[in-house]
Amino acid sequence: MSEWNHYVTMKGTNNGIVVYLDDQCSFDFLLKELENKLVNNQTSGATDITIHSQHRYLSEDQRQTLIQLIGQHSELTVKNIESYVLTRESAYELYEHTTVKTVMKTIRSGQVHEVKGDALVIGDVNPGGAVHASGNIFVLGKLRGIAHAGVEGDENCIVAASYMHPNQIRIASKISRAPDYDVQGSPREFAFINPSTEQIELDQLQHIQKIRPKLLDVFERGL
């Protein structure tokens, strides 16, 4: 069963089976068409599917109605419901997590600068100061305090600084501390989690495109 009709279309993709729902007809008419096709096009064996309502907004009641209808008339199981529609709350959350929050100041000892999204600090982060961000951290100055990028668990985030000499760098749950002995800092470096070693490593900023080629693509960051 590859295609039902103009209003309900089932297609196989790299991510599994997706059922596309027409977004122009009424919801009641869509339910009747979907029920008719489920009854007359039975599948064998349990199969997970994703429903895509395209540009149609589905309320929670409508979502539950679709899930119940499919479960009642088939062995298909709805694992996800997607659309091109964003609620105001979802749009605001996306904005919060994908924009760069800029501050022009020195983060002094005892101060903690926290943002959702990427943090851009135009100034120094002194020893005892800290920057926390759900996204990446960029310091146009000396990073000598603490930087914690990806605080919500994103291991693809980075910490970059004009001059890197931190007390501590954290990315998601990984931690890299400064050595007990005194070392010189380094100009124009960034910290990242190497997936091969699962440890935080440093490299020169000119290599950032090779190591994180999709750094600026927010959709590749799981948002």
Rank of each mutant, 00 (worst) to 15 (best):
residue 104 M to A: 10
residue 84 Y to I: 07
residue 43 T to V: 14
residue 56 R to F: 08
residue 48 D to S: 12
residue 123 G to K: 02
residue 74 S to C: 03
residue 46 A to K: 15
residue 54 Q to I: 14
residue 62 Q to P: 09
residue 72 Q to L: 11
residue 39 V to S: 09
residue 139 V to Y: 00
residue 132 H to V: 03
residue 154 D to A: 04
residue 92 Y to G: 04
residue 80 N to P: 06
residue 144 R to G: 14
residue 90 S to W: 02
residue 64 Q to A: 12
residue 42 Q to A: 10
residue 99 T to H: 12
residue 66 L to A: 08
residue 114 E to R: 15
residue 139 V to W: 01
residue 53 S to P: 00
residue 116 K to Y: 08
residue 84 Y to Q: 13
residue 75 E to M: 10
residue 157 C to G: 02
residue 143 L to T: 00
residue 47 T to K: 15
residue 76 L to E: 04
residue 51 I to C: 07
residue 131 V to D: 01
residue 153 G to H: 03
residue 113 H to E: 15
residue 64 Q to I: 10
residue 140 L to C: 11
residue 158 I to C: 07
residue 82 E to Q: 14
residue 41 N to A: 09
residue 162 S to K: 15
residue 64 Q to M: 12
residue 61 D to S: 12
residue 130 A to V: 01
residue 60 E to D: 12
residue 89 E to V: 11
residue 42 Q to M: 09
residue 151 V to K: 12
residue 80 N to Q: 15
residue 154 D to M: 01
residue 97 H to R: 11
residue 108 R to V: 08
residue 102 T to P: 06
residue 160 A to Y: 13
residue 43 T to E: 12
residue 61 D to E: 13
residue 65 T to F: 02
residue 80 N to L: 11
residue 102 T to R: 09
residue 157 C to T: 12
residue 75 E to A: 09
residue 99 T to R: 12
residue 115 V to Y: 00
residue 146 I to M: 05
residue 54 Q to D: 11
residue 49 I to V: 15
residue 155 E to N: 08
residue 60 E to A: 11
residue 102 T to F: 01
residue 75 E to L: 12
residue 40 N to Y: 10
residue 51 I to D: 05
residue 43 T to I: 12
residue 113 H to V: 07
residue 120 L to D: 01
residue 65 T to R: 13
residue 115 V to R: 01
residue 108 R to Y: 02
residue 50 T to E: 10
residue 35 E to K: 15
residue 44 S to L: 12
residue 90 S to N: 12
residue 71 G to A: 04
residue 127 P to I: 02
residue 48 D to H: 11
residue 141 G to K: 03
residue 132 H to P: 00
residue 38 L to G: 09
residue 84 Y to P: 00
residue 127 P to L: 03
residue 139 V to K: 02
residue 49 I to G: 08
residue 85 V to K: 07
residue 101 K to S: 11
residue 54 Q to S: 10
residue 126 N to G: 00
residue 44 S to D: 11
residue 58 L to Q: 10
residue 84 Y to V: 07
residue 153 G to Q: 04
residue 101 K to R: 13
residue 131 V to F: 04
residue 57 Y to M: 15
residue 85 V to T: 04
residue 46 A to I: 15
residue 63 R to I: 08
residue 71 G to N: 11
residue 57 Y to P: 14
residue 53 S to G: 08
residue 113 H to L: 15
residue 119 A to H: 03
residue 62 Q to S: 06
residue 118 D to R: 06
residue 81 I to P: 00
residue 104 M to C: 09
residue 38 L to H: 11
residue 46 A to P: 07
residue 83 S to Y: 01
residue 145 G to E: 05
residue 113 H to Q: 15
residue 138 F to E: 03
residue 122 I to H: 04
residue 72 Q to F: 05
residue 72 Q to W: 03
residue 129 G to L: 04
residue 90 S to F: 04
residue 88 R to C: 07
residue 116 K to C: 03
residue 119 A to D: 00
residue 145 G to Q: 04
residue 129 G to R: 01
residue 104 M to S: 11
residue 47 T to E: 15
residue 35 E to T: 13
residue 50 T to R: 13
residue 53 S to K: 09
residue 111 Q to A: 10
residue 80 N to R: 14
residue 59 S to M: 10
residue 102 T to M: 08
residue 88 R to T: 14
residue 129 G to D: 02
residue 119 A to W: 05
residue 83 S to N: 05
residue 155 E to M: 03
residue 120 L to C: 02
residue 84 Y to F: 09
residue 110 G to T: 04
residue 131 V to A: 01
residue 35 E to I: 11
residue 144 R to L: 08
residue 107 I to W: 03
